[in-house]
């Protein structure tokens, strides 16, 4: 039991956080709970503290909207949190799509799709930054927040809180895309929100750290990591994972049997 907990502690915590947030949002609408109201685009915590999606606000800015003080403050709070502390933690601890894409990647491993010859990744992980820039350009041309118009993330959150409509189709499409077309396709290649948090999360203090002395080069960490390129140093050098593309999901830490990976606080002074 203790071993099981050890192997899945972060995964369990993450699922608890992700699902609790959805339940709280749902309760805010359905039962009038005051803890968390709204949705991931913008919300009020305890009817007081505003939170808003900085990427949505950025698109609105590109679209030429007048941004209210509430939204600015909310976006600033979220940005500072991920920038200073969480890194790209939004993706692995908050976003509901993460559960879908994790499931797809798990299914790929179980069905051994990854082992089929010739399934080399043809796509660049930089696509998401292109999509990010493109979303701002389209926002400016069309005069509205372009990604918010098609975002499966908001679609699913709104679906849970306000009723789903055909929103479930987005979930199915992303699952199949990740399962059959491209490994870690949506979150690791396409999603501009993930790209946005990758850029912001670069600077955060909480980092995964690799201790090469303990590493037996079993490469279990690289198998589970949704952004395996960030673990380039594994078995080679003792280094923190500095890439913003790491989602701080901590799967690598828990699958490592040799204590070669762990969280660390980035030292303020670079040596």
């Amino acid at each position: 039991m203790a071993k099981l907990w050890n192997k899945y502690r972060y995964l369990i915590l993450r699922r608890i956080v992700q699902i609790s947030l959805l339940v709280l949002y749902f309760g805010g609408n359905a039962w009038g709970l005051k803890i968390l109201r709204g949705d991931l685009s913008a919300s009020k915590i305890f009817n007081m503290i505003p939170m808003s999606d900085p990427y949505a606000v950025l698109q609105m800015l590109a679209a030429g909207a007048v941004i209210s003080a509430d939204l600015l403050l909310g976006a600033a709070i979220a940005t500072l949190f991920y920038m200073l502390i969480g890194g790209r933690a939004f993706c692995s601890w908050v976003c509901p799509i993460n559960m879908v894409t994790d499931a797809a990647s798990y299914a790929r491993r179980v069905l051994k799709i990854d082992n089929i010859k010739g399934t080399r990744q043809p796509a660049s992980r930089n696509i998401r930054y292109w999509v990010l820039v493109l979303s701002l350009v389209v926002s400016a041309i069309m005069g509205l927040a372009a990604f918010e118009f098609i975002s499966p993330i908001s679609m699913v959150v709104r679906g849970v809180v306000f009723g789903i409509g055909f929103g479930w189709a987005a979930v199915v499409v992303i699952f199949l895309f990740d399962l059959l077309v491209l490994k870690n396709g949506w979150c690791g290649h396409v999603c501009p929100l993930g790209g946005f948090y990758s850029l912001i999360g670069k600077f955060s203090f909480i980092r995964v750290h690799h201790n090469e002395a303990n590493c037996t080069a079993c490469m279990k960490c690289k198998v589970v990591c949704p952004e395996s390129q960030v673990l380039y140093m594994v078995g080679k050098e003792s280094l923190p994972v500095l890439s913003g593309e790491c989602t701080n999901c901590a799967r690598c830490i828990e699958v490592c049997d040799d204590d070669a990976l762990g969280f660390s606080i980035k030292s303020l002074i670079k040596k």
Binding site: R37, G38, D53, A65
Partner: peptide, 16 residues
């Protein structure tokens, strides 16, 4: 409508 579309962040607080 034009300004509404670019300003509404789709939070649903009005709905709630």
């Amino acid at each position: 409508e034009k300004d509404f579309l670019r300003t509404c962040i789709k939070c649903g607080l009005c709905v709630e």
